[in-house]
Deep mutational scan, measured.
Amino acid sequence: DETGKFLVLSLYDYQEKSPREVTMKKGDILTLLNSTNKDWWKVEVNGRQGFVPAAYVKFL
């Protein structure tokens, strides 16, 4: 199980638009929880879990 094993870097600021999403700032290091959807990845940032656009992050 690779859940929570990968870190990704936020390339852009992102403001959550729904309760299922999370806000991140450019340069944030996020824990990747799920990347099965090619468009939206589930991450943990600042103690919160939610989705961010996959195009806004990259693997470290």
Rank of each mutant, 00 (worst) to 15 (best):
A54V: 05
Q15N: 13
G47P: 00
D1I: 14
T36F: 10
R20H: 14
D1Y: 13
L7W: 12
L9I: 15
K5Y: 13
L7A: 06
Y56F: 13
G27Q: 02
L60S: 06
I29H: 05
T36P: 03
F59H: 09
V22C: 07
S18T: 12
K25W: 08
E2F: 11
S10W: 07
R20M: 13
T36K: 11
T23K: 03
M24H: 01
A55C: 14
V43K: 00
Q49M: 10
M24A: 01
V52C: 03
G27D: 05
N37V: 04
L7P: 03
G50I: 03
R48S: 06
G4N: 13
T31M: 12
L30E: 00
L11C: 10
R48T: 07
A54F: 03
Q15H: 12
P53Q: 03
L32I: 07
Q49W: 07
T36Q: 12
Y12M: 14
R48Q: 08
K17A: 11
M24C: 05
K58E: 12
D1W: 13
Y12P: 01
V43A: 00
S18G: 13
F51V: 06
E2C: 15
G50W: 03
V22T: 05
K38L: 09
T36W: 10
D28K: 04
N46W: 05
P19Y: 10
D39F: 15
Q49L: 07
A54P: 03
S35A: 14
L33K: 04
T3L: 13
S35C: 15
V43N: 00
Q49A: 11
I29Y: 06
F6G: 11
Q49H: 08
P19W: 12
G4A: 13
P53C: 06
K58P: 01
A55W: 07
D1C: 15
E2K: 15
D28P: 01
K58Y: 10
D13T: 06
Q15S: 11
L33R: 03
N37C: 10
L33E: 01
M24F: 07
N46G: 12
V57C: 10
K38W: 07
E2P: 14
L30H: 02
P53L: 05
N46K: 09
V57W: 02
V45E: 01
K5D: 08
G27S: 03
L60R: 03
V45D: 02
K25S: 09
D39M: 13
D39T: 13
G27Y: 05
W40Y: 07
R20A: 12
R20C: 15
I29Q: 05
L33S: 02
D13F: 05
G47I: 02
F59S: 08
R20W: 15
T23L: 03
D28C: 08
N46M: 09
G50F: 04
N46V: 04
N34K: 07
S18F: 06
E2T: 15
F51K: 02
N34I: 07
R48W: 04
S10I: 07
T3M: 13
V45H: 13
G47A: 04
N34V: 08
E44I: 08
V45T: 10
W41G: 00
E2Y: 10
I29M: 07
K38P: 14
T31A: 09
V22Y: 02
P53E: 02
N37Y: 08
L33A: 02
E44H: 04
D1R: 10
N46H: 11
L30D: 01
K25I: 07
I29N: 02
K17T: 12
L32C: 09
P19C: 10
E21Q: 11
L7Y: 15
G50Q: 01
D13P: 05
R48A: 07
G47C: 06
M24E: 00
K5H: 13
L60M: 11
K5M: 11
G50A: 02
N34A: 09
V45Q: 08
Y56R: 04
S18A: 09
D28N: 06
I29T: 06
L33I: 15
V8D: 00
V52L: 05
Y12T: 10
N37D: 15
T31V: 15
R20F: 14
G27P: 01
A55M: 12
N34Q: 10
S18Y: 06
W41L: 07
N37T: 06
G47N: 07
G47D: 07
E21V: 05
F6D: 09
K5E: 09
T23S: 15
R48E: 05
G47S: 05
K58D: 08
Q15V: 14
D39G: 09
F51I: 06
L30G: 08
A54C: 07
Y14C: 06
D13G: 05
N37Q: 09
R20V: 11
V8P: 00
V22F: 11
E2W: 08
S18I: 04
F51W: 14
G47Y: 04
A54H: 03
N34T: 07
V8M: 09
P19M: 09
L33T: 04
V43M: 01
L30T: 01
D28S: 07
V52H: 01
G47F: 04
Y14S: 02
V8T: 03
A55S: 14
V45M: 11
R48V: 09
L32R: 01
D28T: 08
K26G: 04
V45S: 10
K42Y: 15
F59V: 15
D1E: 14
E44D: 09
D1G: 14
L30I: 08
K26H: 06
Y56Q: 06
F51M: 08
L11H: 03
D13N: 08
W40I: 02
D1P: 14
A55G: 11
Q49E: 11
K42V: 13
E44Q: 09
T36G: 10
G47E: 05
Y14N: 02
P53T: 03
V43L: 02
Y14E: 02
D28M: 14
D28G: 03
S18R: 08
L32M: 04
L33C: 07
W40K: 01
R20N: 14
K58V: 15
E44F: 06
T23G: 09
L60F: 12
K58R: 13
D39W: 15
Y12W: 10
G47T: 04
F51N: 03
V45F: 14
G4D: 11
T23E: 03
P19S: 11
D13H: 05
P53H: 03
K42M: 15
E44S: 10
V43F: 01
D28Y: 05
T23W: 04
T23D: 03
N37R: 09
S35G: 10
L60D: 04
N46E: 09
K42L: 15
S10L: 07
L60E: 06
G50N: 01
T3R: 12
W41I: 08
G4Y: 13
T31P: 08
W40C: 07
S10F: 06
M24D: 00
N46D: 12
E44N: 05
V8C: 12
Q49S: 12
F59L: 15
L7G: 03
D1Q: 14
Y56D: 02
V52Y: 01
L30A: 08
W40N: 01
D1H: 15
T31E: 09
G4H: 14
K26I: 07
K17S: 11
D39A: 11
A55L: 10
E21C: 07
L11Y: 05
Y56W: 06
S35P: 07
D28Q: 13
L60Q: 06
G47W: 02
R48Y: 06
V45L: 15
D28R: 03
E16F: 06
P19D: 12
N46Q: 09
L32D: 00
V57K: 00
Q49G: 06
K26R: 11
T3W: 13
L32K: 00
D39V: 14
L60G: 04
D28E: 12
V43C: 03
E16G: 15
K5T: 12
E21S: 07
L9M: 13
E44T: 06
W41P: 01
V52K: 00
K25A: 08
N34M: 08
E21N: 05
M24I: 14
W40L: 03
K25Q: 10
V22I: 14
E44A: 09
Y56S: 10
L30N: 01
S18N: 12
Y56C: 12
Y56I: 06
N37F: 08
T3N: 13
D1L: 14
K42I: 13
V8Q: 01
A55F: 09
F59C: 15
T36A: 12
M24P: 00
G27W: 05
L60T: 07
K58T: 15
E16H: 08
V57R: 00
D1M: 14
K17M: 12
V52Q: 01
F6H: 13
T23R: 05
L33M: 07
G47V: 02
L9E: 11
L7K: 11
G27A: 02
